[in-house]
């Protein structure tokens, strides 16, 4: 493994991201929506003379859960599949590089692109918030940004798992959007329905929820910014009671697992599947 080769792919990928319509669209949407949310907070500050920062955080959490996974999944899913479809992947692999270098380089480049996108969104809204809302907590805000990046990496990894095996870009994007739907809606709705019907106990419900990286992100964000999970009802209280001070580290570990496992799986699959 040569770091320079990885870096070569990463810079290439980062450059490509700038011209990728998906990336631009997502980045624009994220920036616009987070600015919109912050503008609302700022306007309520103006109207009511108070800081609605906690509520702003909740809205940002919600926005991140919608946009960031879509971004990570589609970018990840496109990256290898598109090159495979065009034949550039075969050509690139015929160079003195290893598949791992290609995969990790692309991952790194896309991760940096996502970082840029998030930094832009959070930076712009942070400026807006700092301008008018007093008492905004910088650690909490940066923590949320950091967790969002974790979620972005997890979904990027999942996208690359798709990309490692998909032969066509269109298939890959289709699968990515399906995965997004499953993570954002179907999984949670299914779990909610199951909980309604079967009366799953709160511990099991909490455990099952962690199967979804979006929920891991959300719960971490709440635990990080509020210190407790009371807003999440009995399951949150259960988790807090069971794990206490270890809850946040545990959640971060699960998020990390959600970053590492798809990355490892994607790498393995790509090495197995190869250029074709």
């Amino acid at each position: 493994m040569d770091a320079r080769t990885v870096l070569a792919f990463a810079t290439k990928e980062l450059r490509d991201a700038r011209r990728n319509r998906w990336f631009l669209l997502h980045t624009g949407a994220l920036a616009a929506l987070s600015l919109g949310i912050s503008a609302l907070a700022v306007s309520s500050q103006g109207a009511f003379g108070l800081a609605g920062f906690g509520r702003t955080t909740a809205s940002l959490v919600n926005l991140v859960m919608l946009v960031v996974p879509l971004m990570g999944l589609t970018l990840g899913a496109l990256s290898l599949a598109q090159e495979r479809e065009r034949g550039t992947l075969l050509y690139v692999l015929a160079q003195p590089v290893t598949p791992s270098e290609v995969f990790l380089g692309k991952y790194l480049g896309l991760a940096l692109a996502l970082l840029a996108s998030l930094a832009l969104g959070f930076g712009a809204s942070g400026l807006l918030i700092a301008w008018r809302v007093s008492g905004a907590q910088v650690q909490g805000y940066l923590g949320l940004a950091g967790l969002s990046f974790g979620l972005a990496l997890a979904s990027l990894g999942l996208g690359l798992v798709i990309s490692a095996v998909a032969r066509r870009a269109s298939t890959a994007v289709g699968l990515a959007i399906f995965a997004w739907l499953a993570l954002v809606l179907l999984g949670d709705l299914g779990l909610m329905g199951t909980a309604m019907v079967l009366r799953i106990d709160v511990g099991a419900l909490f455990g099952l929820t962690l199967l979804n990286p979006l929920q891991v992100f959300k719960i971490s964000a709440i635990a990080g910014s509020q210190g407790t999970l009371e807003v999440l009802g009995p399951a949150g209280v259960f988790a807090f009671r069971t794990f206490g001070a270890g809850l946040l580290p545990l959640l971060l570990a699960v998020l990390l697992a959600w970053v590492v496992a798809p990355l490892a799986a994607g790498l393995g699959l790509f090495r197995w599947r190869g250029a074709l």
């Binding site: 999984g187 949670d188 909980a195 399951a235």
Partner: peptide
């Protein structure tokens, strides 16, 4: 079912 509060802030809750 108060346990469902676990899904507060989730897009699925908004979809409902």
């Amino acid at each position: 079912n108060p346990a469902l509060k676990l899904f507060t802030y989730a897009p699925a809750a908004q979809a409902l």
